[in-house]
């Protein structure tokens, strides 16, 4: 159920947006999702399938743009791009690690039908 609430929120945001721009139908929703968030794209897609029914979003494809985890070592000032969570600096073993990227979760853009294709 973890993804249920955020899927509702995604739909809410997009519905607000198309109301604002007066677009009839959404084709695609581009979502930036950091690897450090524990949200699972397949699960969001699953909930989206039935939550978007009978809305202008029901035919929309969800595109997830994965954001790598980037860490910064406060000790040696190096940045590291990692696939997994790290707890100490791979270079100097320092433990003052800051997370620079990987926590993102936002709707970057939507693609709407403008009648041209």
């Amino acid at each position: 159920m973890h993804e249920y609430g955020v899927t509702e929120r995604i739909i809410e945001i997009v519905l607000d947006k198309i109301k604002e721009i007066d677009a009839p139908e959404v084709k695609k929703i581009n979502i930036v999702l950091g690897k450090l968030t524990s949200f699972v794209p397949e699960s969001i897609e699953h909930y989206f399938g039935f939550l978007s029914k009978n809305t202008p979003l029901e035919k929309a494809e969800l595109k997830f743009i994965a954001k790598d985890m980037v860490f910064h070592c406060e000790d040696c000032k190096e940045d590291f791009n990692e696939d997994d969570m790290i707890f100490s600096c791979p270079k100097c073993n320092g433990e003052n690690i800051q997370i620079i990227s990987g926590n993102e979760f936002f709707i970057e853009s939507i693609e709407v039908n403008d009648g041209k294709d």
Binding site: V6, K17, K28, F105, F106, S109, I110, E111, D117
Partner: peptide
């Protein structure tokens, strides 16, 4: 198709 920027945080 027209691409519209949204840039809105889901958890905001």
């Amino acid at each position: 198709m027209e691409k519209i920027e949204v840039m809105q945080d889901v958890l905001s």
